[in-house]
Simulated assay, not measured.
Amino acid sequence: MAHLTPEEWDAHYASGGRFRSLGGAERRLLAAHAPAPADGRALDVGCGLGELARHLAGCGYRVDAVDRSAVALAEARRADGPGVTYRRLDIERDDLGGLPRSCYDLITVRLVWAFVRDRTRVLHRLRERLRPGGALCVITPVADAVPASRRDIALDEEEIGLLCAGWESAERYDADGLAVLVLRGPSPAPPGSAGKGRPSPHALTGAGVVVTDRAGRVLLGWSVRGVWELPGGKNDPGEDFGAAAVRELEEETSLKADPAGARVLAILMDSVDGMPRLTAAVRVTDFTGEPVVTEPRLVRRWEWHEVSDLPVLGRPLFTPSAHVLDTVWPGLLPGLPPVHRYPVADG
């Protein structure tokens, strides 16, 4: 039943559909926690047939009652009482500037919050309509208290927690199995970020480093895997590509470079064994030291190569290294496997 269109709501009311009548416990809680101030104004959202709106008017409020169903509003007007103005308005889709007043002492949302799809956005717009000291009162079935087949009309504890977040005061009461939430003092929390738990491994990320000496020759290592490759490797957690490139360069060759001088030229994306692989093409021209084999289990030797010799090495290049070299010297290495290349402006 949740997220019905206005036409479906019209059909619901036209066929005799009704909601639970306003109970004595709800009336007592409203009187205790949201009494009408002098010249009090109330907005009843999703008023349906107008029972709550007429009750609030009887308690001293002047009430604007809104609903998206023309059929429900027509029946509500037939039972009209003093102090209530009815208006057709879709709280999710219509401009709230169409409300008769800019702010209210009390906003009520009874039995309909579960039917609102964009709850966070609507909640922010309703907060903006509260006068200082005003209250938003949401009355809702609770998921644990309704049959499984009716969970779509109720809120679970997580949704209630979301609704109550960002208020100076959030009080919860029970009204014969309904949760009555009285929310005061909008106090939205500053934006933050959070994870969703430990992710499953999805991709490889790392950097390939193009290092050239003063003669313009590029450094390659002859790998124990039978390929030529650039210095480089995977990022450590929290490490950016430039820092990873400089760290791997020193760990693999003993050459030292300043991370501030490592330029990320592009991000390359291909795949290996069905796994996405991201490689940063990093350029380093300023370094100290001489290349030394520090990890013989991985690389047998390091050599400086003329760039013009790269297409005729006689042995293959490691694919990510080839893509990085092709980023620095486009078109030098024909026939490479496909790769997605995303140039970095600063590079």
Rank of each mutant, 00 (worst) to 15 (best):
H3G: 01
L4D: 09
P6S: 11
D10H: 11
D10Q: 02
G17V: 05
G24L: 14
E26N: 10
A31Y: 07
P35M: 12
P35H: 13
A36N: 07
D39P: 07
G48K: 00
G48T: 05
G50A: 03
R54D: 08
C59V: 14
G60Y: 06
G60V: 02
V63C: 04
V66R: 03
V66M: 02
D67H: 01
S69P: 09
R78L: 12
D80E: 10
D80R: 15
P82M: 15
T85Y: 04
T85G: 14
Y86S: 03
R87Q: 15
R88I: 07
E92Y: 00
R93G: 00
D95M: 08
G97K: 00
P100R: 10
C103L: 14
C103F: 12
Y104F: 08
Y104E: 01
I107P: 05
W113E: 00
V122Y: 00
L123R: 11
R125P: 00
R125K: 06
E128L: 05
P132C: 09
P132T: 13
A135R: 13
A135H: 10
L136F: 05
C137G: 04
I139V: 14
A143S: 15
A145C: 08
A145N: 15
V146E: 12
I153T: 12
L155E: 01
L155V: 03
D156P: 13
E157D: 13
E157M: 11
I160Q: 04
G161Y: 07
G161V: 08
E168M: 02
E171Q: 14
D174G: 05
D176R: 13
G177P: 02
G177A: 02
V180A: 14
L183C: 09
S187A: 15
S187P: 05
P188V: 09
P188D: 00
G195S: 08
G197P: 08
L204W: 12
R214H: 05
L219Y: 06
L220V: 05
G221C: 00
V224Y: 06
R225Q: 07
P231R: 06
G232R: 02
K234Q: 14
G242K: 15
G242T: 10
A243C: 10
A245D: 03
E252D: 02
T253F: 00
A260Q: 11
A260S: 13
R263P: 01
R263S: 07
L268F: 04
S271R: 14
S271M: 11
V272Q: 10
M275I: 07
M275L: 13
R277D: 01
V282D: 03
G289Q: 01
P291F: 04
V292F: 10
V293P: 07
P296M: 13
R297I: 06
V299Y: 04
V299A: 13
R300T: 06
W304M: 04
V307T: 02
S308V: 09
D309W: 12
D309F: 09
L310K: 07
P311W: 10
V312F: 12
R315N: 05
A322F: 11
H323Q: 11
V328K: 15
W329G: 10
W329T: 03
W329Q: 06
P330K: 04
L333S: 03
P334A: 07
P337S: 05
P338I: 11
H340M: 14
Y342L: 11
A345Y: 14
D346I: 13
D346K: 15
G347P: 06
